[in-house]
Amino acid sequence: MSDGRAGMENQALGLAEAVQRLTPADITVKRVRWRRIFDKLPSALKTDWMLDPSSDPAAPGPGEAWPDLWIATGRATLPLSLRVRERSGRQTLVVQTQDPRWRTAAFDLVVAPAHDRTEGANVLPITGSPHRVTRAALSGGAAAFEAALSALPRPRVATLIGGRSMAFDLPEGHAADLADRIAASIADAGGSLMLTFSRRTPEAAKQVMTARLAGLPGMIWDGTGPNPYFAFLHFADHVLVTEDSANMAAEAASTGAPVHILPMIPLKPAGKFARLHADLRERGAARLFDGTLTPWTYEPLNETDRAARVVLERLGRA
């Protein structure tokens, strides 16, 4: 259950798929949104009739049972998650990912990023957030790009560029400087580039980076056609990721490829992002980008599966 945005849905779905890998399970994806006039109301005041008509029904249909497990992500799902235990007669285990920032004890389990410092007896802190990156998923996603990427000169460098957020910015000048540093490192190593932007990447930054990196061997995804994100991670010998995205950094650290953190322009103290990057450095997964592509090894993160095992313990199926 999520609001349907990819970053949100992938957290809930990633944890559900991890549970499914450990025990037979059927997964149903549901998306919910609130009518605009009610969207900003506190979660405690929201009721079902305030939902937008486009929302999937949260309750089971006639003749259907409540699920054994409810996994939800994001603010939009909180009012529904809070009532599931009561409505199901406590037959449903309610798991919320991310920090709900409100009444953590009302859920059976909260799987929260350790860098958020969420506290509570039912809180499971993990490095990063649950996600869908597995060896099998990456291999499957790579199939459509095998011809285009497998023959690229090595080291193959996946470069994941974020954008403006409350904490960071990527103005044109800084984007140009990053592009020049990336180009120099790949050229010095005789490698190739696999570049993708996020929805938050400013257009000016996207244009200047594309122009300055287009001469390298490789692929720059322009947002059209199939998304090569999983393929890029599958074929990567190194991953460069901007410091604004906790999700991309944790996903990159699940591959076993060296993760290089690209600096952005801070708009406020880095806080939770600094804590995440410190965690990844302590695990040996990530380092600040120093302009070189020196390889190293580490044990890939497997936090989503760890969370799934805890969920199964709570279900009594471990």
Rank of each mutant, 00 (worst) to 15 (best):
F197Y: 08
W102L: 14
Q91N: 13
L195E: 01
T196R: 00
R135S: 11
K268S: 10
P153W: 09
I71A: 11
A278V: 09
T97P: 14
I265C: 13
K30Q: 13
L233V: 05
L45S: 08
S43M: 04
N247P: 01
W102M: 13
G256L: 03
D305W: 04
A144I: 11
D290N: 14
V84Q: 01
M209Q: 01
R103N: 15
R181Y: 03
E243Q: 13
P53I: 10
I126K: 04
P228V: 13
G89C: 10
E119A: 13
R287Y: 06
A184D: 14
T159L: 04
V133A: 03
P24T: 07
T104D: 04
I261D: 00
F168S: 04
I161W: 00
K40G: 08
L124E: 13
M194H: 04
P24C: 07
W49V: 15
N227W: 01
D237I: 07
G141S: 12
A44K: 12
R212Q: 09
D222H: 03
S192T: 12
A183D: 07
G141A: 12
A121T: 14
K268Y: 02
H277F: 10
Q98D: 09
S88D: 03
E172N: 06
F235Y: 15
R181N: 07
R33P: 00
V94F: 07
G120A: 11
P57M: 05
R85E: 05
E119R: 14
D177V: 03
P269T: 06
A184R: 15
G225A: 02
L69I: 12
G256F: 03
D169G: 10
F38I: 09
V241L: 06
V157F: 02
A143I: 09
P53R: 15
I27M: 14
P42K: 09
S254P: 07
S165P: 00
T118Q: 14
S81K: 01
D99Q: 13
H238K: 04
R75I: 08
G120K: 09
G140I: 06
E17S: 14
R314H: 06
